[in-house]
Nucleic acid binder design. Structure first.
Length: 595
DNA sequence: AAACTGCTCAACCGCGTTGCG
DNA sequence: TCGCAACGCGGTTGAGCAGTT
């Protein structure tokens, strides 16, 4: 059969002319046609849909081929009924975006615009018949049905600038959180809010507690969504930010639950307030009735957060990603995280590079700084980080930066590609590639692939083609650094995931004795099809959904007091089990356990 | 069991956008 | 700058299925 298909595929040009006038078939696709199309796309990639007809016996127009591929044959498509979470998300997204199905689809991995459109139309009809509102009564949508019908783009553009409280409020299960060992730093030096003039954007969702609270700020998946969503409508960059605070050492809570128990002195805060009837946002140590249509003033350091009002919810031009820092108990330790994802289209180029000490001036950073920057850039096929052009497709984009006094490391990876054979070749960008004189410092490797199995540095990674598998390792001869990203794992125990870093090609140099200096581990997991996940012998009970990001960063001086942060979000449909533990890089044993 | 109704979803169509010669 | 082709997106249609009468 394969040979036959090959022959069909390779039969080209000579017949193409005669086929030019050939009657094109319509109607349902047969399995044989599917096979031809799949074979063709796997071999030649997407695009040039019209050429398929010329090069194969497929008598379908290019449009039809594209549609068939995108809606049915493309890998990673999710079939079956929408889950409750997906439904909620669709409702929320529609309230903000209107009939922009393709953009909405970017927020629902595995769902096509057609899926969403069909779902919505069915729901719409059902609601109309039942006399029910399309949106929950408590939801204040920005796009009215009238607007929707008129489908005015300019209106949408305007509505996009509205707060995202509705979107935020629609998430039934808040992401889990980690925390401890870090203290939210409200100081001017550590709380970086590049989008200062956008803080007002949905700022009522910044439920800040006592500024001295021992909290960890965690970006959530839906923050990613917000970023992506907002970024897609502004200038390609995120403009919104959402934080979730958890009490130090406390267990993760359903954000709604913690909301209603809101105590001005509590450190548990809920960011997803929008759609909660009678919901309250905790602001300035007072409980104010939540008003989804207005922007509340956000209590932030004055020099970090520009006070805003509804009229100033604009993006901050020129600021590629929003940033916030979390400061650890040690004032010197800062964690900086950004989340933006996914990429919608365009060629993917994965790059990782290590910032040299000189680049990041680590000497001025007394201990450690870790940065995560996943990016959602829907409208852009290209992104520039540190003067590097990064092109990516599809879904996720994560960015990690972990400089310390001894090491400055930055790794970037983008995954997964939405379609087509995904093989993000390891891309080791030594500093030398940018700064030749610093070449010997570090060598990061980024690998991402859509394979069911891969082997990296002698370690087997089992994954599924559902999404992506990213692996980052960035040690240097003198500065053992390791970050790993493996996504997604499907029904496969993760015990095989290597946990210790070693310098590729110089593992001896990165031996245990040297690992004490700096060790950072990053794990990002997308588990779409597994209800259970095990990482480092820890059980993560979850249902498939989206993003699990883990970042650890350890200063050289913290050999005995290592700090690690894990962020796992969002786990869908069940209590989020979050584990954050500190690893002693030398001993590879968790020093602390959270959750 | 047949007719009817409603729903889902695959597929098509038209239009706007983009890229290229 | 213009025209054309390819592509992408949203709207619409209709076949097929399931449930109900």
């Amino acid at each position: 059969m394969g040979l036959e298909l090959d022959l069909k595929l390779l039969r080209c040009c000579g017949e193409s002319t005669s086929k030019g006038n050939e009657h094109l078939k319509k109607g349902p696709w047969t399995s044989a046609e599917d096979e031809i199309l799949v074979t063709y796309v796997n071999r030649f990639g997407e695009g040039n849909w019209n050429s398929i007809r010329k090069h194969t016996e497929l008598r379908r127009c290019g449009k039809s081929c594209r549609l068939r591929w995108i809606n049915h044959l493309m890998p990673n498509l999710k079939k079956g009924a929408f889950t409750e979470q997906e439904e909620q998300l669709v409702i929320t997204l529609h309230s903000k975006m209107g009939n922009r199905w393709a953009q909405m689809a970017a927020f629902l991995p595995g769902r096509t615009d057609n899926d969403i459109k069909n779902y919505w139309n069915t729901r719409k009809k059902r609601c109309q018949r039942a006399g029910l509102p399309l949106y929950p009564p408590n939801a204040c949508h920005n796009v009215s049905e009238e607007d929707e019908e008129s489908s005015c783009l300019s209106k949408y553009s305007y509505s996009y600038d509205q707060p995202f409280e509705l979107l935020q409020g629609s998430i039934p299960n808040g992401p889990g959180i980690i925390s401890d060992n870090f203290q939210t730093n409200y100081g001017a030096s550590s709380y970086a809010m590049p989008f200062a003039d956008t803080v007002g954007f949905g700022s009522q969702n910044y439920a800040f507690a006592n500024p001295t609270a021992n909290c960890v700020v965690q970006p959530t998946y839906f923050e990613n969504v917000l970023h992506a969503f907002n970024g897609s409508v502004a200038d390609g960059y995120p403009t919104a930010k959402q934080f979730l605070f958890q009490p130090s050492g406390g267990t993760s809570q359903n954000c709604f639950g913690s909301l209603h128990g809101a105590d001005p002195s509590s450190q548990s805060l809920a960011p997803f307030l929008g759609a909660i009837p009678g919901g309250h946002a905790l602001l300035n140590d007072t409980i104010s009735t939540y008003c989804p249509t207005r922007t509340a003033k956000l209590e932030l350091p004055s020099d970090q957060c520009v006070e805003t009002d509804a009229s100033s919810r604009l993006t901050c031009p020129g600021t590629p990603v929003s940033v916030y820092n979390v400061q650890s108990p040690s004032a010197a330790d800062t964690v900086q995280s950004n989340f933006v994802s996914p990429w919608k289209s365009g060629p993917m180029l994965q790059q990782a590079h290590l910032l040299s000490d000189a680049e990041k001036e680590p000497s001025e950073m007394s201990s450690i700084t870790s940065t995560i920057k996943p990016n959602d850039v829907f409208e852009s096929s290209g992104l520039s980080f540190d003067d590097m052009e990064l092109y990516s497709t599809a879904v996720a984009d994560s960015y990690v930066e972990s400089p310390s006094a001894l090491v400055s490391l930055q790794s970037k990876w983008f995954a997964p590609c939405k379609s087509g054979p995904v093989l993000q070749e390891a891309h080791a960008l030594s500093s030398a590639e940018k700064e030749p004189s610093l070449k010997s410092s570090v060598t990061p490797i980024v690998k991402s692939s859509d394979v069911s199995e891969c082997r990296i540095d002698g370690t087997e990674f089992y994954s599924t083609p559902f999404a992506f598998d990213t692996y980052v390792k960035s040690p240097s001869a003198t500065i053992p650094y390791q970050s790993k990203c493996v996504t997604p794992w499907k029904n496969v125990p993760l015990s095989s995931v290597p946990q210790e870093g070693h310098a590729p090609g110089s593992s001896e140099a990165g031996g245990p004795s040297e690992k004490r200096s700096v060790t950072s581990i990053m794990k990002t997991n997308n588990v779409f099809c597994s209800s259970g996940l095990s990482i480092n012998d820890r059980e993560f009970n979850s249902k498939p959904v989206v993003v699990d990001t883990y970042v650890g960063s350890l200063p050289a001086t913290f050999s005995s007091q290592l700090q690690q942060e894990r962020t796992i979000a969002p786990w869908k449909g069940n209590p989020v089990v979050v584990v954050a533990d500190a690893f002693n890089s030398a001993e590879e044993e968790p020093l602390e356990k959270f959750c």
